[in-house]
Design a protein around this nucleic acid. Structure first.
Lengths: 111, 111
DNA sequence: TATTTGGTTAAGCATGCGCTTAAGTATTGC
DNA sequence: GCAATACTTAAGCGCATGCTTAACCAAATA
């Protein structure tokens, strides 16, 4: 597949799943226990754990266990990296946009 | 999987693949023809086409065919949506950060 | 008109991923 | 101590995904 893993890679892959994105959105409201998190999802607890593992590997969440309860919370730094990447591509593109306008004017083939 | 497809969903899924992210980064420099794009990648042309299909479905790229050459370019609006989402989660989290500090102080179990 | 070039479609394969159930392991409460 | 609670680990299953090769088609070139 050509899959050399980069930090950004695990990040995007983690957020590609809607369930995991839902967990992130949930955690954006504040820390939650694993079971608390699972109670809001239509999947088994082991599945929740697996998702949390992916999110943690991507640096998107952190957790700490106290007694028998594991608390999970968001790590905003990862989201920042994501935003920065998107913005960088956008910025790069904006500086080249002029050429495209010319190209579009010269042509009219649709597809 | 719980996969109700949302616009954001196809977007993240498209960017989860490093080859596709590479294509996006390439296109951020300016429009390119399909074969031109493919020449820089260690995969077959059909594979490139498939990636472009995913990117287009996600709204990340647009293309137009002129003669027998298809030109492909970036659509920055999709990247903007991505950045906005990341920022929204971040912002939401920042407003709740205080609670976490308290929690961390009260505990010290590591894991 | 014949050939090359640039792209497209189709089929099939191998791997990865998300999910499940079943079976643990620590804490906590009675 | 015994049971309930809150995870955790392990194994396995089915579908999605990225890739390939083998045609095929249409535009440009000789």
């Amino acid at each position: 597949m050509l899959n050399q893993i980069s930090p950004l890679d695990t990040l995007f892959q983690a957020l590609a799943d809607p369930t995991r994105r839902g967990i992130v959105e949930r955690l954006a409201q504040g820390p939650q226990a694993v079971s608390e998190l699972g109670a809001g999802l239509p999947i088994s607890l082991p599945a929740v754990m697996q998702h949390l593992g992916v999110l943690q590997a991507a640096g998107l969440v952190d957790s700490r266990k106290t007694g028998r309860v594991r608390m999970v919370w968001l790590n905003p730094a990862a989201l920042q990296r994501l935003g920065r990447w998107a913005q960088a591509q956008q910025a790069m593109w904006e500086t080249r946009l002029d050429g495209l306008g010319d190209y579009l004017d010269e042509t009219d083939a649709k597809d």
